[in-house]
Simulated assay, not measured.
Amino acid sequence: MSLSIAEKSYLFDSLSSAQALRPDGRLPYQFRPIEIYTDFLPSSNGSSRIIASDGSECIISVKSKVVDHTVEKDLVQVDIDIAGERDDSILVESITSLFNKIIDTIDVSKLQLTQKYSFKIYIDVLVLSTYSYPVSLISFGIYSALNSTYLPKLISSFDDLEVEELPTFHDYDLVKLDVSPPLIFVLAIVGDNIFIDPAFNESKVANNGLIISWSQGKVIAPVRTMALNNTYVKGFKPSLVQEGIDLVNKYGQDIVNALV
């Protein structure tokens, strides 16, 4: 869907005014409605399907593998596919790089099985459709998938440095994966105003965008800017970065509570 010049001009004036009014009536801190379904892929250790009110949709699958962590150091890997985009496109590569960087903040000690072996977690993301920058949608989906992930229960000894066999697991007992993945929020800057979770039409007139990561009750690195369109991009007041951080710090825990 494209917007005419008149529509963009009207929308920009509306969003940048002192009494800003979003097209769908949301307040600056409000998210669009989403639906989340978990644990629906029988061949995965965990899964989620997330659908936004604008029709954007993605599916996340979490699978595990036992690896020797003395050889393989990266214990969490994220792969992202976006329908209609090449695997080597700038959009796919930049989002995949962002998530692999932010996922490093997970406490991988929770994945350790023995002194030699750990679980390696593979997170596969398929974005079926997207009408706005999909980072928040993917982030919420990964959070929900990891929180619905169950792994086999270990029954062999922890002290196995001199043993070559792989760890032994219970035949049917499972243990919930106890990790707290970070969340990533996208914010749009229009004039001197800032809005969380911009819709397609808001992104088209945004002067700039912010990507803010949040975990364990506070904003964490990376915090970065990004262009949400190729037309309206320009600089902004540095104070808006702090305003965006304050907005995420204030409402981040509410989002976590809604996802659990």
Rank of each mutant, 00 (worst) to 15 (best):
M226Y: 09
K218T: 06
L128R: 06
Y172I: 14
D87A: 12
K101N: 12
D24N: 15
A188W: 06
S56R: 07
D79E: 14
S53L: 05
E164Y: 08
S118E: 11
L3E: 07
P222S: 09
Q19H: 09
E165R: 10
I59D: 01
A206N: 01
Q115K: 15
Q19G: 06
N249R: 13
E85F: 12
D173W: 00
I103T: 14
A258H: 13
L137S: 03
D39A: 12
S17K: 02
F185S: 04
A221D: 15
S180H: 04
F119D: 05
P28G: 07
S4M: 04
Y29D: 09
S239I: 13
N100D: 07
N230C: 04
T231M: 11
K218M: 03
Q19D: 13
N207A: 04
F195V: 12
F195L: 11
I138F: 04
V260F: 14
V163L: 15
E57P: 00
P182L: 05
S16Y: 07
V241D: 05
D171K: 14
I36Q: 03
T105K: 14
N249I: 02
E93Q: 15
K218S: 10
S156D: 00
Y172M: 09
F12Q: 02
T96M: 11
V163Q: 14
A227Q: 14
V92R: 14
V223T: 14
G252I: 11
F158A: 02
L247H: 09
V67W: 05
V186T: 15
L151K: 04
R22N: 06
D54G: 09
I51N: 04
N201D: 14
P198I: 10
V127N: 00
A221R: 13
E202P: 04
S9D: 14
L154D: 01
S2I: 10
Y122K: 06
S239E: 14
L137F: 04
T96Y: 08
R32K: 10
E35R: 13
E243V: 06
T70D: 10
V205G: 02
S2C: 04
A20V: 03
I59G: 00
D81M: 06
K120Y: 05
D124Q: 10
D171T: 13
V241I: 15
A221F: 09
E243W: 04
N249D: 13
G244A: 08
L177C: 07
D254W: 03
I106Q: 05
P198N: 08
L174I: 07
E93C: 12
S129D: 13
E202F: 05
L166P: 05
I212Y: 07
S53P: 04
S89H: 08
Y150V: 09
P222W: 05
P167M: 11
V135S: 11
Y122H: 10
V135Q: 07
A52R: 15
F12A: 00
N147I: 01
G141D: 10
N45F: 01
T149R: 09
N147M: 08
I184H: 02
V62P: 03
K250F: 05
V186P: 02
L240A: 10
S17Y: 01
Q115G: 15
P181D: 10
N207S: 10
A52T: 13
K73A: 05
I245G: 01
P152K: 04
K8N: 09
I90R: 13
I51T: 13
E165M: 06
N147V: 01
L259T: 02
